[in-house]
């Protein structure tokens, strides 16, 4: 009896999570004229692949923006995080713990509380409407979380390793390059996955700071789906495109994905 309820519950839950996905695929594969509300759940006859072609044509520039944005901001912020974490874990100075705590505060703020000054600032330095402005913003507001992850990770590396290298005459960057960096791969993976998904999925900064030519895909999708006249096959195909990169990351690197999730779960 208990087993029966268990499986019934799991089946229901699976339906709850997967039926939306099924409907998305279904709708994306339908000819626009055949999308009617009372037959939404019917399998498309014939399957209409054209939607993906059209959606890809429409979204390609935005998709490219998202790729450039997410990859470069992730790379930069991983580098910054590794250096910060290295300093805080292995070269602490008086007051460094306090500064670290003050830095972490930036993780918790709702970005609405800095959005207007940020908008003014980005405009004033001439980066409004450019991808570079958005990259800068993501790197800066990523500092707390990436520093946290790297600092925690580097704290586990024994100080003796650093000491030994120092006695051998290695300097600040020498130790980083030859002792710390070779051990850092797991931290880089966690940070890269976390930042990539966050930045790829981000919307508030993107919608506030970009113009149409520099929009990432999230903004384009929200605007396309918001238009009333549009046929639903396109937003659905667009949603699949927008979701695919992070979904692939989740499927293939799920273990690390979860680790980043648990590490950085209170990020703004």
């Amino acid at each position: 009896m208990g087993r029966f309820f268990l499986h019934a519950f799991l089946l229901l839950a699976t339906l709850f999570f997967l039926l939306p996905v099924y409907l998305v695929i279904l709708t994306a594969l339908k000819e626009p004229a055949k999308i009617t509300l009372d037959t939404v759940w019917h399998w498309p006859e014939p399957v209409y692949w054209e939607s993906f072609h059209i959606a890809w044509e429409a979204f390609r520039p935005k998709f490219q923006n998202s790729v450039v944005l997410a990859l470069s901001a992730t790379a930069l912020s991983a580098l910054v995080g590794a250096l910060n974490g290295y300093v805080l874990a292995k070269w602490p100075f008086r007051g460094s713990n306090l500064l670290f705590a003050l830095m972490l505060f930036g993780m918790f703020i709702p970005y609405q509380s800095i959005l207007i000054p940020l908008f003014q600032f980005v405009k004033a330095i001439g980066l409004y409407g450019t991808l570079w402005g958005l990259i800068l913003v993501h790197v800066v507001y990523g500092i707390p979380i990436v520093t946290l992850i790297f600092k925690n990770y580097y704290s586990e590396i024994p100080d003796e390793l650093v000491e030994a290298a120092r006695i051998d005459g290695a300097g600040f960057f020498g130790i980083f390059r030859h002792v710390i960096l070779p051990l850092s791969a797991p931290a880089f993976v966690v940070v890269a996955i976390w930042q990539f998904t966050q930045i790829w999925n981000e919307f508030l900064f993107a919608v506030t700071l970009t113009r149409p030519e520099s929009q990432p895909i999230t903004v384009a999708l929200a605007q396309l789906a918001g238009g009333e006249a549009v046929k639903w096959n396109l937003p659905m195909a667009g949603a699949i495109l927008a979701a695919l990169p992070t979904l692939l990351v989740y499927i293939f690197l799920g273990r690390y994905f979860l680790r980043g999730l648990l590490a950085g779960s209170v990020k703004g």
Partner: peptide
């Protein structure tokens, strides 16, 4: 099951919102 229950976490709220607006 774990993979199925957790995958929406990988999506953006924009994608989720678009999907559910249609649903």
């Amino acid at each position: 099951f774990r993979t199925v229950f957790l995958f929406p976490m990988a999506l953006s709220f924009v994608v989720t919102g678009t999907i559910w607006r249609w649903l």
